[in-house]
């Protein structure tokens, strides 16, 4: 379980102090899929960087399973917008890196990687160079690399934001299936309202300058979910609710 209590973050620059986040309270229960949606520049990435442990908060408390978050840990795996694969490693070596770093024997790593290659629909691509794969496949390698160390939570920072619309849809469906199969705890960040409502159990809407969590919308749709959910009136109604919080100016 991830907990944030009154977390704030300021940056000290040439123009004085810039508040990036203020008074953020947030809880992610084990097995939950929580989506944070907000306009660009609202501090979403800062929030994720704090939870990952890349940055320290200016004020407030961040804990995971009751322990304060003091730095990056294999308990919190991150998938960025860019796949950030290591080009000197094959697909197989990229996925298995986390196990190799902790000294897992080669044959066990091999079996685990085979398993994830199969889950990710990448069977037969293990020996490819990472840069030979398409964008969507590269992002699946990045997800496999994060999941193989069995983190307590998967942090995703606009993971499909750099993909074209079709691939993005494919990856959203893929992630729904993957969640159904592995039930990871996910904190997912996006600016795409439809993506948020389709994937999340709860959608937290952020407002900007400084970033705070303005409102929370529970997503009642049962799982397993299918992509055609996005065409139902209930879905559109919920999307409208989120949008009206995010962009009140569009609704008068």
């Amino acid at each position: 379980m991830i907990e944030l209590r009154q977390v704030a973050k300021c940056y000290h620059g040439q123009n004085g102090v810039t508040p990036a986040l203020a008074d953020v309270n947030l809880t992610v229960q084990d097995g939950e899929f929580v989506v944070v949606v907000g306009p660009s520049g609202c501090g979403k990435t800062t929030l994720l960087g704090l939870v990952a442990g890349f940055e320290r908060p200016s004020a407030g408390m961040l804990t995971m399973d009751g322990q304060p978050i003091l730095g990056p840990s294999h308990q919190r795996a991150v998938v960025f917008q860019q796949p950030t694969l290591y080009p000197w490693l094959t697909v197989r070596q990229n996925i298995g890196l986390g196990l190799k770093l902790r000294g897992t024997p080669g044959d066990r790593t091999r079996l685990a990687v085979d398993h994830y290659l199969e889950i990710m629909g990448l069977s037969g691509f293990g020996e490819h160079a990472s840069y030979q794969l398409s964008g969507g496949m590269q992002q699946r390698v990045a997800i496999a690399r994060a999941l193989i160390v069995e983190p307590g939570v998967l942090l995703m920072d606009e993971p499909f934001g750099a993909l074209d619309a079709n691939t993005r849809g494919d990856m959203q469906r893929f992630l729904l299936d993957l969640w159904q199969r592995l039930r990871p705890t996910v904190l997912f960040i996006t600016h795409d309202v439809e993506e948020a409502v389709l994937l999340g159990d709860r959608v937290l809407v952020m407002t900007d300058r400084p970033g705070r969590i303005g409102d929370e919308v529970a997503v009642p749709f049962a799982r397993p979910r299918h992509w055609d959910l996005a065409l139902t009136p209930e879905f559109l109604q919920l999307k409208r609710t989120v949008l009206s919080i995010l962009r009140p100016d569009m609704f008068f």
């Binding site: 890349f54 990056p72 919190r76 795996a77 991150v78 960025f80 290591y86 986390g98 770093l101 994060a146």
Partner: peptide
């Protein structure tokens, strides 16, 4: 060295 390359490895528990 791109920052995110380092961050990915840190999250995998690299020393």
């Amino acid at each position: 060295t791109p920052r995110q390359r380092l961050q990915v490895a840190e999250c995998l528990g690299a020393t």
